[in-house]
Design a protein around this nucleic acid. Structure first.
Length: 881
RNA sequence: GGAGGCAUAGCUCAGUUGGUUAGAGUACUUGCUUGACAUGCAAGGGGUCGCAGAUUCGAGUUCUGCUGUCUCCACCA
């Protein structure tokens, strides 16, 4: 294998695109369903085809790519299906907006067909944008299987599902109360309505009683709906209003007669006890109306202007009408009072205009039979949520789900495959287009409405794999392994995929739902267009590189929780990449080998065994964390290893052998350091694919690419526990010396002689003196057997006592004996404190009896160490007398 | 009204089944142009783990209550 050079500075722009292109060219992202390997599959939550990559996508794709790359390296047949969604309302609005701005036209000016042509050409022009942005991130999607939700295959699946559900009686058409967005001019599902608190009023209005002088007081927040009142209801148990039942009221202004009906929907004691019933404009009133056979009078047009039922207010906007009506009611003495009242108002999740509940002829999916298996599959754990708490979010919703309004009065989307015959009135639902009525042969016209965008998204896990055809993709990769998405679309999408998968495939669409939170700005605010606080991931990539972005998103991100994105975070990520780059460059420039062969155990130095043990532990930690979706935990363990263990210690320890090519151990060091670096790179690869590949290519390597190399596995032969422990002691001693020197402001250039008394003198091999001279600025090192300071002859020395060694630095010219005494006295006190604490613990009968033996043993060892240290300190103090 | 999250160093956050002297990044202080890296190295200060109880030999971690904060669902006109 060729070993490339590494450029002097870390410049991700120079290699990220090149590497990505190479991966694509080599076909690494495309699995073979016939490869005989176990499957791991993921479908991307399809971004809006006309959208732009934002931080939410970046997080979602990063997490998926981490899992996908990890599993691929572990030898799974790994498929990540990419694609885009048509996003009905959002896209249509965008194109309409463009049409309005550029040509001053509405979609009606163009007509359905011409308008759809425009949307398609917009899709052709901008649809690739989001895809190329995903590629910038490094997403290892199988682009040969890229899908668009309105392509032929997905559309076929949509029709198949629609007809199947219709034939089973699970899709029906009916005049029901739905949520209507007067701005988007379409029906919405319950899930598409967002409630926001708004300041409004309760208007108390007199409804005169027919044939009597009195009146009934009615309070309403939406007076303009009174034109649609068809009754007033009271609770039959309410003593205060019982007498009204059966009487007739006169609707103010309009003069129409309203019966007073009894219905226990009215809550006793709330408000006036009398409720106006407007079946065509309120979901509860709709139900009351059904129970009592009341007429539905719809008083608004599709754009929320008043219709002829509003009499002289006809043509006014709903709010204009409200204002005028209140003024008139007041003028005519019907208005009793106006009470300010904050209440929740439904708004459209796309345009945020107030939604109007009204009756309309729409298509619905009957949910109860579908919800049942979708609940069971979660109850019994076939579908698991990660983190677990989102299970409840899901089941609560599914247990209380209402029928799903799936028709939208839009043009952009999957047109409902229902055909009406005006001649005989027959309606035909068909998988293929028909032009003649199967009953009478007359021409038919297709339903104008299209399907809710989530209707087709719900089929994504199998429609993208070719269903309803029996494809080898479906056989191999369905159900998918994990779905990665934000908690904000559990209802919209996750829930609907589950019942769709159960209904049409007979199997859950995925076994795990891995939920992440939102990416917020540095102040913790939601990123939004209106606030203008969005951070563009592409700018971040441009400035810092995709790896840094991925690192910043993956680190410190715990499942299901929101996270903040800040300059600090991305800089820290870039610094880490830079650190790794430079460390690798150091390794690279010290290499003369062109193949890595791990030396035999007998040839390994103490520090080699130490790092191999640490690396082995890291493999275990990272694997365990990734298997339980603890992406952030895995990454921080890798980060700590690379920066603190590998760079700060191992590289420093290796410099001795590496800098001296004549040293017999030079090759051992070369092999171990490049081996350790390679394994670390592999562990890091799922998180930072580009930099790890670039470095991998510069080192001796067996695989063509790091991304198809095998993920490291725990190996018992690297459990050099005893040696690692000894090395740990050595490091502790060096650290202690550095700390003392630092404290005394002794610059590194001022070398000092080091005497060490230790009972672990066997830990100090031939390299030890060099370690100390390099890392502890020692001029000369003398090691004595034992922990007894009396074996050291040095006077006027700084004395450092660790739990493994007594160390002396003779620096007679700068030593202040009194200060040294104080210093030792503090140490003495601290150590005595620890001993007291441990002795207390160990003399506690309960602890000794009930704690696990290993814990008790550990505490005993600790106590012994502290006691030894205490002796050392006492001797040191004595020496200063 | 119902459900859930969060509360740990100045700031942003980790802390996996209860078990060393509670960690990281960043900020701060001090010293270092040590031949990979100043996007760096070394050292230091800084925490009664929101409050009150309970369980336990042992609680940041489990349970109960409370406070603050955020979110979701439902919605009474």
């Amino acid at each position: 294998m060729n070993m490339t050079e590494l450029s002097k500075t870390y410049a991700p722009k120079e290699f990220e695109d090149r590497i990505y292109k190479n991966w694509c060219d080599k076909g690494y992202f495309t699995p073979d369903p016939k490869d005989g390997k176990p499957a791991f599959s993921v479908v991307i939550p399809p971004p809006n085809v006309t959208g732009q990559l934002h931080m939410g996508h970046a997080l979602d794709e990063t997490l998926q790519d981490i899992l996908v790359r990890y599993k691929r390296m572990q030898g799974f047949s790994t498929l990540w299906v990419p694609g885009t969604d048509h996003a009905g309302i959002a896209t249509q609005i965008k194109v309409e907006e463009q049409l309005r701005v550029n040509e001053g036209l509405t979609r009606y000016d163009l007509g359905r067909e011409k308008f759809l042509e425009r949307v398609w050409s917009w899709k052709e022009q901008y649809g690739g944008r989001i895809i190329s942005q995903l590629k910038k991130l490094g997403a290892s999607c199988d682009w040969t299987r890229e899908r668009f939700i309105m392509d032929e295959g997905c559309s076929k699946a949509v029709r198949e599902v629609f007809v199947n559900l219709y034939d089973k009686g699970l899709i029906y058409r009916g005049n029901r109360i739905i949520n209507w967005c007067p701005h988007c001019i379409t029906a919405l599902s319950d899930a598409e309505v967002e409630y926001t608190e708004q300041n409004g009023n309760f208007w108390h209005i007199k409804y005169p009683i027919k044939g009597e002088d009195g009146y009934v007081e009615i309070a309403t927040t939406r007076p303009e709906t009174m034109f649609g009142d068809t009754a007033v209801a009271v609770n039959p148990e309410d003593e205060n209003t019982k007498h009204l039942i059966g009487k007739t009221l006169i609707l103010p202004i309009v003069g129409r007669e309203l019966p007073v009906i009894a219905d226990d929907y009215v809550e006793i004691g709330f408000g006036t006890g009398c409720v106006k019933i407007t079946p065509a404009h309120d979901p509860n009133d709709f139900l009351v109306g059904q129970r009592h056979g009341l007429e539905q009078i719809r008083v608004m047009n599709d754009d929320a202007t008043m219709n002829s039922y509003a009499g002289k207010y006809e043509g006014m906007d709903r709010y204009e009408c409200r204002k005028a009506l209140i003024a008139d009611l007041e003028a005519e003495g019907y208005l009793i009072k106006t009470v300010p009242h904050a209440h929740n108002v439904g708004t459209c999740y796309r345009c945020h205009n107030t939604v109007e509940p009204l009756t309309s002829n729409q298509w619905f999916v009957k949910m109860e039979p579908l919800a049942k298996p979708a609940l069971e599959v979660v109850y019994d754990g076939r579908v698991k949520f990660e983190p677990e708490r989102f299970t409840k979010t899901y089941t609560n919703w599914m247990e209380n789900v209402h029928d799903w309004c799936i028709s939208r009065q839009l043009w952009w989307g999957h047109r409902i495959p229902a055909f009406y015959c005006d001649a005989c009135g027959e309606m035909t639902v068909s998988k293929t287009d028909i032009d003649k009525c199967p009953k009478c042969g007359a021409p038919v016209r297709q339903e104008n409405d299209v399907l809710d965008t989530w209707f087709s998204s719900a089929l994504w896990p199998f429609s993208t794999m070719g269903w309803p055809e029996k494809t080898e993709e479906l056989a191999k990769y369905y159900p998918t392994s994990v779905l990665v998405t934000g908690y904000d679309i559990i209802f919209f999408w996750v829930a609907r995929m589950v019942f769709s998968g159960m209904e049409h495939m007979g199997k859950e669409p995925f076994s795990t739902v891995f939920i992440h939170g939102l990416v917020r700005d540095a102040q913790g605010r939601k990123m939004s267009k209106s606030l203008g606080n969005g951070i563009d991931p592409l700018e971040i990539i441009d400035q810092y590189g995709a790896d840094a972005l991925r690192f910043a998103l993956a680190t410190g991100n715990s499942p299901g929780n929101d996270m903040r994105f800040s300059d600090e975070k991305i800089e820290a990520a870039r610094n880490f990449a830079n650190k790794l780059w430079n460390a690798s460059r150091f390794v690279r420039m010290n290499l003369t080998i062109d193949k890595i062969t791990l030396p035999e155990e007998k040839d390994l130095a103490l520090e080699d065994k130490w790092i191999l043990k640490k690396l082995n532990d890291l493999v275990t930690t990272a694997t365990k964390a990734l298997d339980s979706y603890e992406v952030g935990v895995a990454l921080s363990a890798i980060y700590d290893f690379i920066w603190d263990i590998f760079c700060d210690w191992y590289i420093e320890l290796c410099k001795i052998r590496l800098s001296d090519k004549e040293n017999g151990n030079n090759l051992v060091a070369q092999n171990v350091i490049s081996y350790v670096l390679t394994v670390a790179l592999k562990l890091l690869h799922p998180f930072m694919p580009f930099i790890t590949e670039e470095i991998y290519q510069s080192l001796p390597h067996d695989d063509e690419s790091i991304m198809i190399s095998a993920y490291p596995a725990y190996d018992a032969k690297f459990d050099f526990a005893a040696d690692a422990e000894r090395m740990e002691r050595l490091i502790a001693a060096i650290r202690a010396i550095r700390a003392r020197r630092n404290e005394m402001n002794i610059v590194p250039s001022r070398k000092a002689k080091v005497y060490i008394a230790t009972k672990y003198s066997d830990s100090f091999n031939e390299n030890t003196a060099v370690f100390f001279s390099r890392l502890a600025s020692a001029s000369e090192v003398e090691i004595a057997e034992g922990f007894d300071s009396s074996v050291i002859s040095a006077d006027d020395a700084v004395q450092i006592v660790t739990d493994a060694a007594s160390i002396f630095l003779p620096l007679s010219d700068i030593i202040d004996v009194e200060k040294e005494k104080e210093k030792l006295a503090v140490e003495l006190k601290k150590t005595e404190g620890e001993i007291a604490r441990l002795e207390g613990k160990l003399s506690n009968a309960g602890f000794v009896a009930k704690a696990p033996a290993a814990v008790v043993e550990g505490e005993k060892e600790k106590l012994a160490k502290y006691k030894e240290k205490l002796e050392g300190i006492k001797q040191a103090i004595a020496k200063l007398q």
